[in-house]
Design a protein around this nucleic acid. Structure first.
Length: 461
RNA sequence: GUAUCUUUAGUUCAGUUGGUUAGAACGUCGGAUUGUGGUUCCGAAGGUCGUGAGUUCGAAUCUCACAAGGUACCCCA
């Protein structure tokens, strides 16, 4: 095959689309029921908007778009090529960045949150705050694909911006549970707070190294405590530091027990105290709202460094799958676009990973492959003309139907009905027209009965 | 950027120390059955063995290079 979808991207068949739409529709329905309003933003954004928001690694993973219809002037051309000769020297990254800037000013969006922040800043005068928006669109990352990881995938975001209230966190947790219970997928919600992680850094007197600290801690369940400590030491944390925090990382038990321990260690650091209060509030309110699958996980860090408060991740139980939903609070994301002091909190469902989970567990609804309810068998011109009217009547009643376009052999038409998973076939031949009736065949049971035209739509409701 | 595996029919795969005409299952198409599909039976079509070079009398099989795809790191959600 010479022509195929490029690495990390996929075509979606009709059946796959029905399954995907089931996911999107379920999430959309829950979002709407909580008063979120839908927006969309363009697939591409200015590199100014995208660069520097996701850390150094994120910049590398941005898909950049080559400028079209633009030509470099001769002197620029010279500079451009000289940048490539520099690439062999030490300042590689700088040269590549410069060269990129000369020929590319746009990129594909990397997530939905940063474009949303730009959206909020651009439309601040038209937006009613607190603004609850949802957005379901693809994002692109130039990552090496592997299991549960694609170069083009959909995120389903919901954010509340312009409100500091922790009620928003609770609402998002509710949404998570509503969505996954609709899917029938058992999950655990992992909750943490960036302020607690900041307190760790402060406890060690190394507030500036918070990123190194969180990146290392995040790996705990993957590489184990010893390796985390090794990594920390490589990043410049000393042995005493590690000894101070290792009991924190090792903590097991109920949320209450963890909180108690945290209280003792970081309770007298201002930012730690704040973090603990926030977590307690969210846990208590969630409990009142019958959310009881939250696990306080102080090793949860999350890579994106714009988070400042609550951070949350969802894992499917008993599955080898990365997190299927993530989110958190960011106090100043719009600040980078010139609109400071607006706090937001949001979550994002990873539709493609959820798809993989539902597929693996066989949780898609049984009738998902039913696209159209009725097929009219075509017996010839006179008969199909007649079916045209019947079909219009059924569609007006909200019953989807189609007429087989040719008067092919019955076997062929029935096979089509079967392959396309029509639940019903209607046969209208000469005899039936004469009697103002038709044969309705149930394709699941194989049973068929003769029904008057008048009572057809009622029967199919 | 690092490591590792894979590539044979539309799909999933088999293919012996290198030996004649490269096989199976499923799918597709036709027939058994011209007003009845999903079961069954019969038949057919479908392959530059990823690409290129090398070794050999002879390569799907051995060697090398390249390409594409997967998986695990790094990283990320």
């Amino acid at each position: 095959m010479e022509y195929k979808a490029i690495k990390g991207t996929r075509d979606f068949s009709p059946l796959q689309m029905q399954k995907r739409n089931y996911i999107f529709d379920t999430i959309t329905k829950v979002y709407r029921s909580h008063g979120f309003l839908q927006i969309e933003t363009p697939a591409m954004e200015s590199l100014n908007t995208l660069m520097g928001k996701y850390g150094e690694e994120g910049d590398k993973l941005l898909f950049k778009i080559l400028d079209s219809g633009m030509f470099l002037k001769p002197e620029e051309m010279q500079e451009f090529s000289s940048l490539f000769s520099d690439i062999n020297d030490n300042n590689q990254t700088i040269s590549i960045n410069k060269a990129t800037k000369m020929i590319s000013e746009k990129g594909l969006r990397y997530d939905l949150t940063v474009p949303f922040a730009r959206f909020v800043v651009n439309h601040r005068n038209d937006i009613v705050f607190p603004f609850k928006r949802f957005q379901i669109q693809p994002v692109w990352r130039a990552d090496r694909p592997q299991k549960g990881r694609y170069r083009e995938f959909y995120q389903c975001d919901a954010d509340i911006i312009g409100s500091n209230s922790l009620m928003n966190e609770v609402e998002l947790l509710q949404i998570i549970n509503e969505v996954f219970s609709a899917f029938g997928l058992p999950i655990v919600i992992k909750l943490n707070n960036r302020k607690i992680l900041s307190a760790f850094a402060e406890l060690l007197g190394k507030a500036d190294k918070i990123t190194d600290l969180t990146v290392a801690i995040d790996k705990l369940d993957k590489i184990g405590l010893d390796n985390v400590i090794n990594e920390l030491q490589e990043k410049g944390f000393c042995k005493e530091d590690c000894e101070k925090i290792s009991p924190l990382l090792n903590v097991k038990g109920s949320n209450e027990e963890k909180l108690l321990l945290l209280e003792n260690i970081i309770g007298n650091i201002e930012i730690g105290r704040q973090g603990l209060e926030e977590i307690k509030y969210v846990l208590t309110k969630s409990n009142n709202a019958d959310i009881n699958n939250i696990e306080l996980d102080i090793t949860l860090a999350r890579g994106l460094n714009y988070y400042t408060g609550a951070i949350v991740e969802v894992k499917a139980l008993d599955m080898q799958m990365g997190s299927i939903t993530g989110g958190g609070r960011y106090d100043n994301l719009t600040g980078i676009f010139g609109m400071p002091d607006v706090s937001g909190v949001g979550i994002s469902f990873g539709a493609d990973r959820i798809y993989d989970c539902l597929e693996e567990k066989g949780l898609f609804p049984k009738d998902i492959e039913v696209a159209t309810k009725v097929l009219f068998i075509n017996f010839g011109e006179k008969e199909s003309d007649f079916c045209l009217h019947l079909a219009t009547t059924l569609r007006k009643k909200g019953i989807s139907c189609e007429i087989y376009p040719e008067s092919a052999k019955l076997k062929k038409q029935m096979k089509y009905a079967n392959d396309r998973h029509f639940p019903y076939c209607i046969l209208v031949g000469e005899e039936e027209i004469k009697n103002s009736a038709c044969v309705l065949k149930n394709m699941l049971t194989g049973e068929q009965e003769t029904i008057a035209f008048d009572s057809l739509s009622e029967k199919l409701q």
